[in-house]
Write a protein that binds this DNA or RNA. Structure first.
Lengths: 165, 165
DNA sequence: CCATTTTATTAAACCTGTTTAACGATTTGG
DNA sequence: CCAAATCGTTAAACAGGTTTAATAAAATGG
């Protein structure tokens, strides 16, 4: 089922039930939460990825996060009860679900490792390398938040990099 | 299959194939890697948990980490090919595997959130609260590493907390 | 097209943790 | 039981962030 979002509109807000998986066709979704009054970005979803508030989704808890379009965005939704039904019915799909969850785990695990072992500067350069397009479509203060920095901090890192080559 | 480890012995070392899951009966296992010459602790496993180098295990890659006993430890091993065989044979077990992987994902995800939103001091206090026993059995420099700190840094945090109540 | 809002940068003061080194205290093994 | 190694704390100099505030630049919308 197709859903079209204008910039600033949300798929999920804190407190809501998370009963869908999504596939992002075009646009960009900011997965973030409000922590002590400030935005804290968890992830940016762009073209051709599956996503949802996976934490709330798997735990069957109300969302604590936002899924918000940072630009006009088109997603397709997949109902959770349908997914669950398929898993029950088919061993193959259950297996696919397990392997997908493995992927999610591995991605999150490597992120923990980066947070523990890499500097902010290294993480910034990595993001620049891995997702250069992001910097053209998402404001820098959100990218700063994603990197666990303030806008001022990210500005300083950029300045330092220019200075030192 | 029961395996007894003396303090300092390892279940897994970098480069080795990870072909087992483990259940920790008694003792403590330090899951760590060497990053730029220094120990970087990922997790401590203690009584009654399942564990392995899950990253290498699921990706079928050689280990990059150590699983090392920080004290005399007893674990039971479960062979990976047996596990895989069970998953193929039983939809129920496949499902259990998926849900277990969900758990692993959720734990890792909440850790990313803590790394992004909590201070070192808050993470230290949380560890003290959640796993007080750990501080009696693991040297402080390993706990510092687990928290992403140097031993000196952790010492300072403790000092500050004593001072300010 | 202008006024307003949003975003990025800079500076200054500050805070927290690092690095290096020294010093005790404790543990360990021969 | 002693010698050696390990471990925790401290100090001093430093590095890399934050906070606050001011300013400049760019985007937005009426």
């Amino acid at each position: 089922k197709k859903v079209v979002l204008k910039k600033g509109e949300t798929l999920i807000r804190p407190g809501e039930k998370v009963c869908n998986f999504y596939y992002l066709n075009t646009g960009c979704i900011n997965y973030y939460k409000i922590v002590e009054g400030a935005v804290s970005v968890l992830e940016f979803y762009t073209e051709d990825v599956f996503f949802t508030d996976l934490y709330a989704y798997v735990l069957n808890k109300p969302a604590t996060s936002f899924l918000e379009a940072t630009e006009d965005t088109v997603v397709y939704t997949i109902n959770k009860t349908d997914v669950e039904h398929c898993f029950r019915k088919s061993h193959q799909l259950e297996r696919f679900g397990r392997l997908s969850m493995q992927d999610a785990f591995v991605r999150t695990f490597t992120r923990v490792e980066r947070l523990n072992n890499k500097t902010n500067e290294e993480r910034y350069l990595r993001l620049l390398r891995k997702r250069p397009g992001l910097f053209q479509r998402v404001p820098q203060y959100l990218i700063a938040s994603y990197l666990g920095l303030t806008p001022v901090g990210l500005s300083k890192i950029k300045k330092r990099l220019v200075k030192n080559g």
